[in-house]
């Protein structure tokens, strides 16, 4: 079957989609967007988290055909999405330029914070965590630690022990508050 939807602001179309394919498979294998990760394919790890019509979901559990006509944001589109949300200036990217920052420019604040706080190790959980964390900070700009933990409780990480992830989200929230 054919499936058409918008990904990161661009209309996309996939042909010859098998009816049992997930949105995750279509993104990764048909649309060249492998940023969303395939870690469990049963909704138990959050690595494939995307925003489907604004809402964070596990894209492994969305049948491709269910995405027809919808708007999807993946990690690949997160920076642009953040830029539009903040009204084109990208706060985090500019203030990130300290002596220990990475080389990246044009990142969403939460992406820069993950790099700066050391929240990335193997990085396989990172895309899903970024999408989930970014959405939480959109809803709740000043989260308590318990709020952060609850919002990210659907995203498994096996490398970090989550401490640096907590640091990263706190950092992104603080930078967001400074920029506001």
């Amino acid at each position: 079957m054919r499936v058409s939807f918008t990904v990161n602001g661009r209309p996309q179309q996939a042909d010859d989609v098998w009816e049992g394919e997930s949105l995750l498979y279509v993104l990764r294998e048909r649309l060249g967007l492998p940023g969303s990760k395939n870690a469990c394919e049963q909704g138990e790890c959050g690595s494939c988290t995307v925003r489907l019509d604004g809402v964070p979901v596990c894209s492994c559990l969305v049948a491709a055909g269910q995405a027809e006509g919808s708007e999807v944001i993946t990690v690949e589109g997160l920076a642009e999405y953040a830029r539009q949300r903040s009204g084109d200036a990208l706060p985090g990217a500019a203030d990130g330029a300290g002596p220990h920052t990475g080389e990246g420019a044009g990142l969403a604040p939460v992406q820069q914070a993950f790099i700066d706080a050391g929240a990335v190790q193997c990085g396989f959980c990172t895309p899903g965590l970024l999408v989930a964390a970014d959405e939480m900070l959109e809803r709740n700009p000043d989260p308590s630690d318990a709020d952060i933990r609850e919002a990210l409780s659907g995203n498994l990480c096996r490398c970090t022990g989550y401490e640096k992830i907590m640091d990263a989200v706190r950092l992104a929230a603080a930078r967001q508050a400074e920029g506001a």
Partner: peptide, 9 residues
């Protein structure tokens, strides 16, 4: 129920 992502769907 499960996780925030699952509760959203």
């Amino acid at each position: 129920v499960a996780s925030p992502q699952i509760r959203n769907r």
